[in-house]
């Protein structure tokens, strides 16, 4: 119980550190700070008006005071103004985030299931043709740059064969149509899954092969279980904490992949927003997205740790003292 509490406190500490980092970055951003609030009108202010505006916004106060008021603003839901879209950031985000969630969420599930299945197949037929074939194909797919794969798929399926749409999340006016959305999701999902599945498949496979060399697998075999039964009932149980940790690592990894895929397919999600805001120097939007993604990752890491500790007796033991002393 105590260790769990310490873990949660540590997470809160990480979040605070992240927010400080983001705040420092926000202040290091080049350009006029007034621009992020007033847009282009800031150029036409004279010196006295500028001072007035800075005072009103509290930009003349010491940094730590600004940090806490910034934090307060964040919690109240006031995330600043987006330069490019000319909207408050908090109004802009939800729709785009939903699109990314759909793409990323489905990709995450698909990748998890496929990677596990491939790893199990490789472990069952270790060393034989199936295993070697899957490994080589997997490595090849891992090395394909995802944006290049996306462009190639667009070239083949959209431009030449005209089977699938070249981009976007849905055709105009059909945002609620599931079929339409699914058709638009096919290519981006294919790219995401192909470029990530073997990364996790290889990790799972090597860990699974290591587990299969343990003595309890031999005991299970001596008890009369078949290979499939051993893989599923014995090896997977001990691998559960590892799989949960992989899920925690996978989240930022796959999310990073969605940014590129959204840029290639013009899919209106958070990734597209990030690329546009980075190109257009829209720091409010950019940093808000960075803070949001960091928050989500840290919380999911905590969740993964709690879940894996529940499943694994081994993790409940305390680590030993440093060997420096």
């Amino acid at each position: 119980m105590l260790t769990a509490l310490i873990r949660v406190l540590g997470t809160v500490f990480s979040l605070c550190l992240l927010s400080v980092l983001i705040f420092v970055l926000a202040h290091a951003a080049p350009g006029d700070p007034l621009q992020s609030f007033f847009g282009n009108a800031a150029d036409s202010l004279d010196a006295a008006q500028r001072l007035q505006a800075l005072d009103a916004l509290g930009l003349n106060r010491p940094l730590y005071q600004q940090y806490f008021s910034w934090l307060q603003q964040i919690f109240q839901g006031n995330w600043g103004m987006s330069l490019i879209y000319r909207m408050p950031v908090q109004h802009l985000l939800p729709l785009y985030l939903l699109n990314t969630l759909i793409l990323g969420g489905i990709a995450f599930l698909l990748i998890a299931v496929l990677a596990l299945i491939l790893a199990l197949i490789c472990a069952r037929f270790e060393g034989r043709l199936t295993d070697r074939l899957i490994c080589s194909l997997g490595s090849a797919s891992y090395f394909l740059p995802s944006f290049w794969l996306g462009v190639i798929l667009i070239l083949i399926f959209a431009v030449n064969l005209r089977l699938l749409p070249p981009g976007g999340a849905y055709d105009p006016g059909q945002s609620a149509s599931l079929l339409n959305r699914s058709i638009h999701l096919l290519l981006p999902l294919a790219v995401l899954v192909l470029s990530h599945v073997w990364y996790y498949g290889a990790l799972l496979r090597s860990r699974l092969l290591e587990e299969l060399r343990a003595d309890y697998i031999l005991t299970a075999k001596a008890c009369g279980l078949s290979s499939v039964q051993i893989l599923i009932s014995q090896a997977l149980r001990t691998m559960l904490p590892f799989m949960l940790q992989l899920c925690a690592i996978a989240l930022p990894h796959i999310l990073g992949g969605t940014f590129v895929v959204e840029a290639v397919f013009n899919y209106p999600g958070a990734g597209l927003l990030i690329v546009q805001s980075a190109k257009g120097h829209d720091y409010n939007l950019l940093l808000a997205l960075v803070l949001l993604s960091g928050f989500v990752m840290i919380c999911s890491a905590l969740l993964a740790h709690i879940l894996s500790a529940y499943f694994d007796f081994r993790l409940r033991a305390r680590p030993e003292a440093s060997w420096l002393h």
Binding site: G256, S293, I298
Partner: peptide, 9 residues
């Protein structure tokens, strides 16, 4: 915290 944000980001 560095790892919590994707490298690309």
């Amino acid at each position: 915290i560095c790892q919590s944000v994707p490298s690309l980001l």
